[in-house]
């Protein structure tokens, strides 16, 4: 099953994702302009973009575990998934800046004063160097440091999940589910053997 799926996926060009994945953004914008996002489309658009960004980040985080535990190989699509996630985070931020807060002086005040916004902004800032170094040239240039740098994704996605949880009023289920999935995917990366070796080394020193 997985083998035939892998074979089928090999025929899908990665560039297709750069055409398909931006489509929801246009769809959300269209809905917002035509009343499809309800009586208050600004917050709704912001939330749709943010949630889709978080979903893409989670898919990106799932690529390695899917290969390791299910044998499904999506590694070829990971760059496009990551870049598209960044694209949606940026749109989410832009919506907040231009349509939601509107007032320049308040934007900075919010970033410093409101912890959930500070955390969201930190997540975005962490993603910027990753997006900038997602090209082949950077991968070659940075060599082994590239892998290290891109481990920042783990922190960025975690911040995104926390950001979502913190902005909810009351104890809401959806942000908890997102954060649970993120923590689960991060936990899968802990290799018990490696951890034991590292702890062993530390106690020996």
């Amino acid at each position: 099953m997985v083998d035939s799926l892998n074979t089928a996926l090999r025929r899908v060009p990665a560039w297709l994702l750069y055409i398909v994945l931006p489509l929801p953004a246009f769809w959300f914008l269209y809905l917002g302009l035509t009343g499809g996002l309800g009586a208050e489309p600004i917050k709704a658009l912001e939330q749709e973009l943010g949630e889709f960004a978080l979903q893409l980040l989670i898919v990106g985080l799932a690529v390695t575990p899917l290969r390791r535990f299910a044998g499904l190989n999506l590694i070829r699509f990971r760059r496009a998934i990551g870049l598209m996630a960044f694209f949606y985070v940026a749109l989410h931020l832009l919506t907040w800046l231009v349509l939601d807060v509107q007032i320049l002086s308040q934007i900075w005040a919010d970033i410093v004063k409101r912890p959930y916004i500070t955390i969201g902004m930190a997540g975005f800032v962490l993603l910027v160097p990753l997006a900038l170094t997602s090209n082949n040239w950077s991968v070659r240039r940075l060599g082994p440091r590239w892998r290290k740098l891109h481990k920042l994704t783990y922190l960025a996605v975690l911040l995104g999940g926390v950001h979502y949880l913190m902005l909810a009023k009351g104890l809401q289920l959806e942000p908890l589910l997102y954060l649970g999935v993120i923590l689960g995917l991060l936990a899968l990366r802990i290799e018990p053997g490696k951890l034991r070796r590292r702890i062993g080394r530390r106690s020996a020193a």
Binding site: G32, L99, R114
Partner: peptide, 13 residues
């Protein structure tokens, strides 16, 4: 969040 201003529902995007 700030309570200094508000958004009147119905004004669109």
């Amino acid at each position: 969040w700030s309570q200094a201003s508000e958004r009147r529902i119905g004004g669109g995007l």
